[in-house]
Nucleic acid binder design. Structure first.
Lengths: 201, 201
DNA sequence: TTCATTATGACACAGCGTGTCATAAGGTGG
DNA sequence: CCACCTTATGACACGCTGTGTCATAATGAA
């Protein structure tokens, strides 16, 4: 079942082989967005430029926004992993803040080409509909942060607000970094974490 | 020019009178959403139930989400006004936090029926697409908060992150209040402001 | 070779949001 | 009272998104 599932595990034994490279399509879309404009570029245009059908395009990118946000997923995931790694060291409040800082910064390391990410984030910043999606795209990350705080003894309500504030601030940091020309996003992220007040610290 | 502009000032001298009551339509839509489900209720359904054309519906509510978020606008606006009112009293850092607290709470006063707002917010909480819109809907408020902080001497970058965090936290407070049964949202909002670290305080 | 499995695309569909244009319904000046 | 202007409304058509359905292509396995 679930016939529509592009390569769930790494191993595949039978069936027609995959001929579509999602990464290539995403970067092609990015190029088209830059040339023609985001809303003036239809999914049909992208599919045609990629030489595939519109339906096939939707199989790999469930929405137009996903063509942009999909590329940010490794960054988000790395940040989440760092957060869970920080759990291993049991922490007083100072470690708690350090954990948030580490998580915020961890995403930077997995970015192979910062200029591509900057392009993506600029596109996101310029289009409210894309920026809005941050709430959904960062939801897993927010949830992980909440869990992290809970385990470290932060009261439930506080953990909820703190994780929301944490993600909003760091997202804004990425936005500001993308808008400028500084090569390193880390100072922006660290400054963002500074606006949080962690209980007991 | 700008022929499509439903009643810009309060005074109108000529032309066909308005027969559509936006508030009635919004509450009708809310009812339909509750009965049928948000995504299963089409704009066509709402228009038909209201006895008007789909195009007329779009004249008053520019999107389906606007049927929900539009009703929150007075609350958001009141919060913004409170923020600017707090500007009149020049403030040290303590007043700054107090200003944020006051602004967060100010919206509560203008809500005539808390249960209706709770219904709206629950709908928002249950639908990621609606929750996402918080980023857009609260953007003016975020900008006002940023200005407020700037004028009070908060560094620009800090103001940016702080206002983002402030709005995310208070929005989450509204979500939590809506999810429960407590009559008063104020304690939630105050707790949300607590997770912010204001420079110099 | 035949079969099972999987990728792809052609097609159709509901729904959103936007234009354009005709018509209705009230005012105002003659 | 009538012609005229202004404005609200709705009928229609359009492009686009996202989804479902189904036929077809391309491979490995039996």
């Amino acid at each position: 079942m679930l016939p529509d599932d592009p390569e769930p595990p790494g191993m595949r034994s039978a069936g027609r082989p995959v001929t579509i490279d999602p990464d290539a399509i995403a970067s092609l879309a990015l190029r088209l967005f830059a040339e023609i404009g985001y809303e003036r570029t239809s999914m049909e245009d992208i599919a045609r430029a990629a030489g595939i059908g519109r339906k096939s395009l939707y199989r790999y990118f469930s929405s137009k926004a996903d063509l942009i946000w999909g590329g940010m997923e490794p960054v988000i995931a790395a940040s989440g992993t760092a957060l869970e790694g920080a759990l291993d060291q049991r922490g007083d409040s100072e470690d708690l803040v350090a954990g948030l800082r580490a998580a915020a910064v961890a995403g930077v390391a997995v970015i192979s080409d910062l200029s591509v990410s900057r392009g993506r984030l600029r596109l996101i910043a310029e289009h409210p509909e894309l920026a809005s999606r941050s709430y959904e795209s960062l939801a897993p990350q927010r949830e992980r942060a909440r869990q992290h705080l809970l385990v470290l003894g932060v009261p439930e309500e506080t953990a909820c607000y703190l994780s929301a504030a944490y993600l909003a601030a760091t997202f804004e940091a990425w936005m500001r970094w993308a808008a400028g020309t500084d090569p390193d996003p880390v100072p922006y992220l660290l400054a963002a974490v500074e606006v949080l007040r962690v209980p007991g610290a």
